[in-house]
Nucleic acid binder design. Structure first.
Lengths: 209, 209, 209, 209
DNA sequence: AATGAATGAGGATTCATTCAT
DNA sequence: AATGAATGAATCCTCATTCAT
């Protein structure tokens, strides 16, 4: 009915198309946020028509949730917790903080989109937001476990408090970097942060013992 | 304020309409972000037709910049820096942190919208974003000055570093509160933060002296 | 920003635009039904852009409900019940039936669209459908009242039965005309129908007396 | 039917798939009409992918025509014309009408979809519509033949008139039932209808003789 | 100071259909 | 006999903005 189109219809390849869509969506959403991410923009970036995106994902919400999920996996994979049990605690905290700083610099889309989703509220919570909060909670649990080994005598609530602070400051530093760009050197900031965490853990240990 | 008697139905009044629009826009934008804030939504919330919004503001960008500006003023007014020069430094830092925590809880729209604007990037930077970064810088300068009086011997770069960290962690704690809601008690977190800042200042003083 | 367009933007005239939209929508919907009536088609027919249609009507559903409402009013206005109380009953029934036949031929959009809406079922009942059933019920009540005066001794249920039959056969004859076009002559059919109604009324009167 | 043993999971089977598609399409189209019946909806209902539907049917039009054809066959099979030539005419008409009423209640999809198709007009007439009008004409011819045996002396045109009226009122009563649901009792209505037909036939016979 | 009406561009999503496998 | 993937056109509707009054 319609002319067969000059360029060969490229061989259908679901796996690859899905990846291309996710790549494009991650790139766009990491920069423009939920509302700012239009299907047309993603379509343009990935080279597939908008209707093809809907073959792979139920809707925009579903797409962005998948973006968050994959971004987290990539980020979590990059984050190899350093050091071993024989190292002194301060060094381990500092190394951990440095590692987090590095991965946030390397793959910032996950956190940037996640924070945007976190701050926005809309009538129907996007499942992308729910997904972010969920994976963030996973990461938080892991960090709490690490901190617990560093301050074995501290009680649960205290560990939770420090964990919350640790993540909050990391979020804030990420934002500071987003704002300041090259004028912000994250390394000394994360050093300062690491020292703050260490001191807090020490204080907890002595106070509760 | 300007209404001489309470009983008269107020006639068309530019000042008042402008305020109603700003109120509505602040409410919407603080929750939905830049893209999510549609003129139609603001119009509905404030009861004035969309075209009237355009009588008071050049465009959406202009409106949101005005929102940011006014929100900052309200926030800054609420933030009366406590204590005087004779109090001991640790108390003053803690009081300051507590004050910031309180105002963020009371009028969160300013920071929430600001952070959303900060994280988003679009082809043409909205002047609302520029406005936020500008007033934020003002606040930052003030904080740096306060910290400088608390650590007189520290050099400029060190003060800048601590200032950046102070603001970053405050941002992060604000977000933590947004996520956690009632399950997050900001007070002990800001206590922890205050202690971290104090220790950092002390360290700076001893290191550089 | 965009060039001001050669043809003068015609002077805004809400009342007239609304009418033009309704005219176009009635024309399209009377032929194509609910699903087949696209906003783009209506827009093309009435000369106003689709977005203008949405200024006048909340959505497609709202538009079509308005179409039904207005079509019914037009139809009901055209339907001047004939005869007076001194005429013999058979003549009055026949005249009434003839009148209905004539108006259905003249302004068929109302009934055609209404019947289409009636037959369709969708997850969310369109308010256009609800509107049709409502005005149809009004017409039904009026007819029942007329028939009651023709068979004063008949009981309520009997009148209801004949009313239902009267309307049903009229619907069916309308459809027959739609199918058959010029090959169907409605007049003898409505004569037959009138006689059937008359006989039924007579039977009711004698049976119940 | 063709399955030799009950226990085997049936393998790909064209006949069975075709039936499943038709079942789903009949269900959807009987409720939603031509436009409202999307291939995606049928696909979901029958469990086969959309592309499989296109393997069995040329296009949507072809599918719906097949639905009409099969629905008519089912309906016609259910309609066993009752009575024999020795019964008195009034009884035979009443029995016939009752039979029609019953089958319409039992398998209403055929008529509902058919009437929807009848009322809609589109640029290209769907073959489903053509199919409905065709089978409807078959049914009509059969009814005319029956009526002719009941009024042997009536002329062709008179029989045609009564046939048209008979079908039209049946259509209308079907619609009344669709609208009124349980509040409409078809039996007395079809009784009334049967009597009207009988009287008309009698009148024809006496008038023309 | 305000607003009813209008409007082109773009929003997400679904459509019927095709085609290589 | 069937299907996963793809696709252009069309769907309804909202967008920011303008303009005559």
């Amino acid at each position: 009915m319609r002319e067969p189109r000059g360029e060969r219809k490229r061989r259908a390849n679901g796996e690859e198309s899905r990846r291309r869509i996710l790549d494009a969506a991650a790139e766009v959403a990491g920069v423009r946020g939920y509302d700012g991410t239009s299907i047309a923009l993603v379509s343009e970036k990935c080279g597939l028509p908008a209707s093809s995106i809907y073959w792979h994902f139920k809707n925009k919400d579903d797409l962005l949730a998948a973006v968050i999920e994959r971004s987290f996996d990539i980020w979590a994979d990059a984050l190899t917790l350093p050091g071993d049990d024989t190292d002194p605690a301060p060094d381990r905290v500092a190394a951990l903080a440095g590692q987090v700083a590095k991965t946030l610099l390397d793959s910032p889309d996950f956190l940037r989109l996640g924070l945007m989703l976190t701050l926005e509220r809309r009538p129907e919570e996007p499942s992308a937001r729910r997904m972010f909060l969920q994976v963030r909670d996973t990461a938080r649990a892991r960090l709490a476990a690490v901190l617990a080994t560093l301050a074995p005598s501290a009680d649960r609530d205290a560990i939770e408090l420090v964990t919350t602070y640790a993540i909050a400051a990391a979020d804030g530093l990420f934002i500071a970097k987003e704002i300041g760009g090259d004028s912000v050197d994250l390394m000394p900031l994360f050093d300062l942060h690491a020292r703050a965490l260490h001191d807090a853990l020490v204080r907890l240990t002595t106070e509760t013992s």
